[in-house]
Design a protein around this nucleic acid. Structure first.
Lengths: 330, 330
DNA sequence: ATGAAAGCGCTAACAC
DNA sequence: GTGTTAGCGCTTTCAT
């Protein structure tokens, strides 16, 4: 199958231009001729060479998607949304996992440049987001989950401060007073959620107990373990986790130590991952419109592509507080 | 940044050939010259054009990964394993979700051809697997999770019959007798697991109650709902689900109807998805070596690329029975 | 160790 | 409505 467009042209008795026009469905071709070409393509089993096409046309029809880890259900869903939207528009997706590692991040950004991607959807670590210079790239970038400094790039993010504050309000209303929080140390998101958390506690004159940790279940295990080992009189009566991975670790550690969320200590956090309503009692969470975030990111990208001069936009979506048994009234 | 290799050559005062040699790190270049070229690249911010490279070299360094849905935790993990292995070897990955839809499947296979992928890792629907002709493709294909007819392509799969049989043996040993099974109707895997299930029941002289259904939680809901509505004397006393999605649906429906797995009716199935040991009681499952499946698939692919004449290999991995409370003795 | 030049397969001017 | 041709940016003989 090392057929070239020329072979098709000969088989159909037309020029390569005509074949090209049929393939890309642009430019005038008589219907009879089109059928003849299509027939030849079919019969020979010809497949246009994507690399040649991209080189010549200067349009790669490729978008890059850089996330920390697809195994995080948040990014699993986002990536599916992005891929659905992309393939519908005839765009190909290159998916990269950075593991919150700045070296991988730099390497994948370089990969995007070499691929001459049409655009890129990017979830940067906090440091990378601060340093990010959109002008350094020839393609538009849409940040998701985490934005850089205002105006540095289009972004779609959650209203993190508000969501974290609502979690605190809910806990306070339910009678909890010694509220401790676990926040991811790698992302802007973690900081914003911390700020909303701390401010809300401050409004109630409550002490702020917070840790910034590596955003994985294991680090949650350690910190929650330490908290639970505290003197019962002073240990937290409620724990908040700033993302699904930390929430999972916190839950596991509580169960491992025989603590029932909502009975012994309240537990709440971010991300309505499927396990949170499967366990008993269910876990109170801030649900993010996950699929929508991916979909909107693609829309922002498409619009930016259509009009590069448009001013930078940041879409802030509200989280939804889903109340379950893990924050039962004291 | 519309720099070409020629610009780098001029800046460094060498020929494009030399720059190319430095870029691909092959061919002799004096160290002083190499440094000069590297400096020019760095200073200009040059990035080689991947499409041009691929077109000229004929090597796309790209592998295709076709799965039904990355949101299925099995494929999430597999895809992460494949991507890790691929990027380590300097290969790019194109990920496609077919949703068990044969049109999408055909379209993505065609995409692989146009991309001139180096190789492809593919989880076909049952029908596509039967029809699959490896000779029709210019690149090697490794099937995962589901194999085609013997010898049609390299494959890495679970020992499905054995695993399903062990699930049945376990249930019988625990005192269950009216065992019903839910099996995916789209994949070879579902059939094999059904066969192991049915044979094991047969060995014990037990009746076979099985349904082939669309492999998603919703269809499990319906069937389990119908079973639970049965006359208590004749309704199943144990339910087996042939993959993680069906198991999840079965679990939800049981809880919705107030049935506790392991107390009222036993529940067991495939895929050690994270929720299965979070719920109480935990769910007895066959755990698959998921990350390893992806990793091995890449190894098979790499070896096949190194020696295309090698005879077709099918790697069959054992599942691990993880016993939890959902199959407590009656 | 380095360079000149051909050409990968396609699309887009431009001519007719 | 169709064809001729230049050239996208790179790698790879083949010379030197």
């Amino acid at each position: 199958m090392n057929l070239r467009i020329k072979d098709v042209a000969e088989a159909a008795g037309v020029s390569v231009t005509t074949v090209s026009r049929v393939l890309s469905n642009n430019g005038p071709v008589r219907d009879a001729v089109r059928q003849r070409v299509l027939g030849a393509i079919e019969q020979l089993g010809y497949r246009p060479n994507a690399a040649a096409r991209r080189l010549r046309s200067g349009d790669t029809a490729t978008i890059g998607l850089i996330v920390s880890d697809v195994r995080n259900p948040f990014f699993t869903e986002v990536s599916r949304a992005v891929e659905d939207a992309a393939y519908q528009q005839g765009l190909r997706v290159i998916l990269c996992n950075t593991d919150e590692n700045s070296e991988k991040e730099a390497m994948y950004l370089r990969l995007m440049e070499e691929e001459r991607v049409t655009g890129c959807i990017y979830s940067p670590t906090h440091d990378a987001a601060q340093r990010f210079k959109a002008q350094a790239y020839d393609f538009p970038v849409v940040m998701i989950d985490r934005a850089g400094p205002a105006g540095s790039a289009d972004a779609v993010v959650l209203d993190n401060r508000d969501a974290a504050a609502r979690l605190v309000e809910h806990l306070v209303e339910r009678g909890y007073r010694r509220i401790a929080g676990l926040f991811g140390n790698a992302s802007t998101t973690g900081r914003e959620r911390h700020d909303g958390f701390a401010q809300a506690l401050g409004r109630h004159g409550l002490p702020v107990r917070a840790e910034f940790v590596e955003p994985n279940p294991e680090s949650a295990l350690r910190h929650v373990g330490a908290w639970l080992a505290d003197d019962p009189a002073s240990r937290p009566d409620a724990i908040v986790a700033s993302n699904g991975l930390l929430l999972l670790g916190a839950y596991r550690e509580m169960r491992a130590r025989g603590a029932t969320p909502g009975a012994d200590i309240a537990l709440a956090g971010f991300d309505n991952d499927s396990w949170t309503d499967l366990v008993t009692p269910g876990i109170t969470v801030i649900a993010q419109p996950v699929y929508e975030i991916g979909k909107i990111a693609m829309q922002l990208l498409t619009q930016r592509l259509a009009d590069p001069s448009m001013s930078t936009r940041s879409l802030v979506l509200p989280g939804e507080l889903v109340i379950r048994g893990s924050t039962a009234a004291r």
